[in-house]
Amino acid sequence: MDYLQVNRANWNARVPIHVGSDFYDVRGFKVDGRIALTPFEREEVGDVTGRSLVHLQCHFGLDTLSWARLGAEVTGLDFSDAAITQARALSDECGIPARFVTADVYDAVEALGERYDIVYTGLGALVWLPDLTRWARTVAALLKPGGFLYLAEFHPFGDILDDESGTTVTYDYFDRSPHVWEEPHTYTGSEILEHQTSVQFQHGIGEVVSAVAAAGLRMEFLHEHDHTLFARYATLVADGKEYRLPEGAPRIPLMYSLRATAAK
C-alpha cells in the first residue's frame, strides 16, 4: 500500500469537515482573535516576535497562523493540497501574513529552500511518518545555527491502554508495523468521510529522542503532561479545554513536549 497516497486522500477528505467543525472553531479564530495553541506550547516556546518559524504538517494552518498572531514570521507545510488551499484562504481572510507550501515533510528542505529559527511540529503529526530518523535529519537541515525544534505530541503510552477505561494494557508498545485503519468518521464529528482508509505508525518516546539526538540536536527538555485535548478514554473528565483521569486515580502521561537546539 502506498501510505502517502492513501493518507493524502484521507486528509484531503477531512479538510472541509474540520474547517466547519466546532472542534477547530474557525469562526472563533477569525472573529474573536482566538489563539489555537495550548498554554504549555506558548510557555515552552517563549517569545516568537520577529523570529522565523516553519510548521511542518500544518494541516489548514490554524496553529501556524496562531504563531503569526504572536509575532512570528511563519511558513506552513503540508502534503494535503486541500489543506494548503484552506490555509491560504484563512490567511488572506484574517489578514495574517504567512507562506504556505504543499509538500511531503520529507521533501521540506527542497520545497522550502530556506532555514528557520524555529521548527514547530504540533499534536498528532508523528504517527503519519514511517521514518523518524529521516524526519529528524530534515528538521536539523531546516534550522539556522542556534535555532530549535519544538515538538508537542500525544504520548505513545496512552495508545497501549484500553479505549474504554484507559487502565488496562491492551496494545503492544513496541509494535512498529504499519497500522491500516478503516474509519468512517474523523475525530471532529459524525460526518462521513469520502476516503476512510489511513495508514499510521506508532513511535515510542525512546525512538523520538534517539532520532533527534542522532540528527545532532541538543535536547533541552522532555516534558510529560497528565492531560490531553479530547476524551481519549470514556473515563476522562473535562477540565476546561483539557481532559484528565478522575481525581484520585493514578495519573499517566497523555501528552509530551520536547525542545532541541541546533549547534551555533
Results as ranks from 00 to 15, higher is better:
163 D>A: 14
183 E>I: 12
123 L>Y: 15
91 S>P: 11
117 D>L: 03
155 H>S: 03
163 D>T: 12
172 D>S: 09
143 L>A: 01
141 A>L: 10
103 A>I: 04
116 Y>C: 14
128 W>S: 11
146 G>T: 06
105 V>N: 11
157 F>G: 05
149 L>E: 08
160 I>G: 11
99 R>N: 06
188 T>Y: 05
145 P>T: 05
80 S>D: 01
118 I>G: 08
106 Y>C: 04
156 P>V: 01
128 W>T: 10
139 V>D: 00
191 E>T: 11
96 I>H: 01
180 V>G: 02
122 G>R: 04
156 P>D: 01
144 K>T: 14
183 E>M: 13
75 T>N: 07
101 V>R: 12
82 A>P: 04
141 A>F: 03
197 T>H: 08
193 L>Q: 04
123 L>I: 15
168 T>L: 06
159 D>G: 12
196 Q>A: 13
143 L>C: 02
98 A>F: 05
120 Y>E: 10
88 R>Y: 05
85 T>F: 14
174 F>S: 09
84 I>V: 08
82 A>W: 08
150 Y>P: 07
185 H>L: 00
110 E>G: 12
104 D>E: 12
79 F>L: 11
189 G>L: 05
121 T>A: 15
116 Y>S: 13
154 F>M: 13
153 E>R: 06
195 H>T: 08
143 L>I: 08
182 E>D: 08
133 T>E: 15
167 T>W: 12
139 V>C: 03
85 T>C: 10
135 W>Q: 07
181 W>F: 15
189 G>M: 09
92 D>Q: 13
181 W>R: 15
177 S>P: 05
109 V>M: 05
177 S>T: 13
196 Q>W: 08
189 G>K: 08
161 L>W: 02
141 A>E: 12
75 T>V: 14
123 L>V: 14
189 G>T: 10
187 Y>F: 15
195 H>V: 04
116 Y>H: 15
186 T>F: 07
177 S>F: 03
106 Y>H: 10
75 T>D: 03
170 T>R: 11
158 G>S: 05
184 P>T: 12
190 S>Q: 05
166 G>T: 05
170 T>Y: 04
84 I>S: 02
193 L>K: 02
183 E>Y: 10
98 A>R: 06
169 V>H: 00
157 F>R: 00
149 L>G: 03
84 I>P: 01
